[in-house]
């Protein structure tokens, strides 16, 4: 690069000299045609002909292979036979297609004339056409009288501008208005924490240190309407760590039970399930965009694109020793949205 810098001005000088038209190299024209083997030697041409025919023959065999694979391979509900059939169907189709394609191309390359030809380009727009077109447009406009009759013009513009609006309005019923649907989940006081997907309730004593339980609210599995929508907000990850490692902030001291904490599994970034729990570092990692939350700091974001901590679900145990929610989440779960305060 150093030498380039030195040559800066020099190059400019040379370049200027090179730019004058007289100083340019003359176009020598299309190079003379170089005959191919098949042009000179009839045997080579005959050989190429045979090769093309063989390629077409391979295509025929490919098609036959396809039929044999389709009707001949018995699918017995095992993956192995399906894989075999898929392979043979594909090979059959592939050979059928490639045989035709390579055959035609070989034919064109070896046997069809290969003289390059030059064709003049035409003007995309000729001046005569432009003048004629302008004249026609002027006449048309004049005949419609749109310039002389602004009332017609303006009302037409207004009508055309308004006419599509009903079409837009018709999309209103695509879905309901959000209302406050995003602000609450199906958790409420006393809802038992149960296993996902079995629905069995969880005792505090079940949750040993280092465990991670994937949890849904009791009653979710029994829902018939809106089950996935409810689940999409309510899924929770339950973990137990040494109570000394938790550092609850004011007002959250009693949200956990003897080191057992429950956090929303829905990432505050764009909503993937944050389900990767590292039981020694106490970090939660989102597999989609790598937001990392620190369980010992109330799931504060320590890396990645998320901004807010995961919402915590306050929990306690009921009279039978099962884990239950104290209330719903105290904030909306999942990604941020405009109306979220």
């Amino acid at each position: 690069m150093g030498d380039h810098g030195d040559g800066h001005s020099e190059q400019g000088a040379v370049a200027k000299a090179g730019q004058s038209v007289a100083e340019k190299f003359q176009d020598p024209g299309i190079p003379p045609h170089r005959p191919r083997l098949a042009d000179k030697d009839p045997r080579a041409a005959k050989r190429a002909e045979r090769q093309v025919a063989i390629l077409f023959g391979i295509s025929v065999l490919g098609t036959l292979l396809f039929f044999w694979a389709y009707f001949g391979v018995r699918l017995d509900q095992t993956v192995a036979t399906l894989r075999l059939q898929n392979l043979l169907l594909g090979l059959g189709t592939g050979f059928a297609m490639l045989g035709i394609g390579t055959g035609i191309v070989h034919w064109a390359k070896a046997l069809m004339p290969d003289h390059e030809v030059s064709e003049e380009r035409h003007e995309i727009r000729s001046e005569a056409d432009r003048v004629a077109a302008v004249k026609i447009v002027d006449e048309i406009l004049d005949e419609t009288g749109i310039k002389r009759r602004p009332l017609i013009r303006n009302t037409l513009i207004g009508a055309v501008a308004l006419a599509p609006l009903p079409a837009i309005a018709m999309f209103r019923d695509l879905g309901p208005l959000p209302a406050n649907a995003l602000s609450h989940t199906m958790w409420k006081e006393g809802t038992r924490l149960v296993h996902d997907p079995t629905g069995t309730p969880i005792k505090a004593s079940d949750v040993t240190i280092g465990s991670a339980f994937h949890v849904i609210p009791d009653g979710l599995n029994e829902m018939t309407e809106g089950k996935l929508e409810a689940k999409a907000k309510a899924v929770v990850l339950l973990m137990r760590l040494n109570p000394e490692l938790l550092h609850p902030s004011a007002g959250r001291e009693d949200w956990s039970h003897d080191g057992i904490v429950a956090y929303s599994k829905i990432c505050t970034h764009v909503g993937c399930p944050v389900a990767l729990y590292e039981q020694q570092t106490h970090h939660l990692l989102c597999p989609c965009h790598q937001s990392t939350f620190d369980l010992t700091q109330e799931c504060k974001v320590i890396f990645g694109p998320a901004n807010r901590p995961l919402p915590q679900l306050p929990i306690k145990i009921d009279s039978e020793g099962y884990l239950v929610a104290q209330s719903d989440f105290h904030e909306p779960v999942g990604p941020s949205f405009w109306e979220r305060s």
């Binding site: 898929n86 392979l87 043979l88 169907l89 594909g90 090979l91 189709t93 592939g94 050979f95 059928a96 297609m97 490639l98 045989g99 035709i100 394609g101 390579t102 055959g103 035609i104 191309v105 034919w107 064109a108 390359k109 069809m112």
Partner: peptide, 21 residues
């Protein structure tokens, strides 16, 4: 035309081989 037409079958063939294996 022959080259371009033949090339369609070649592309199809390559895709078919990928889907096969």
């Amino acid at each position: 035309a022959a080259k371009a037409g033949g090339f369609f079958f070649i592309v199809f063939g390559v895709v078919a081989f990928m889907a096969a294996a």
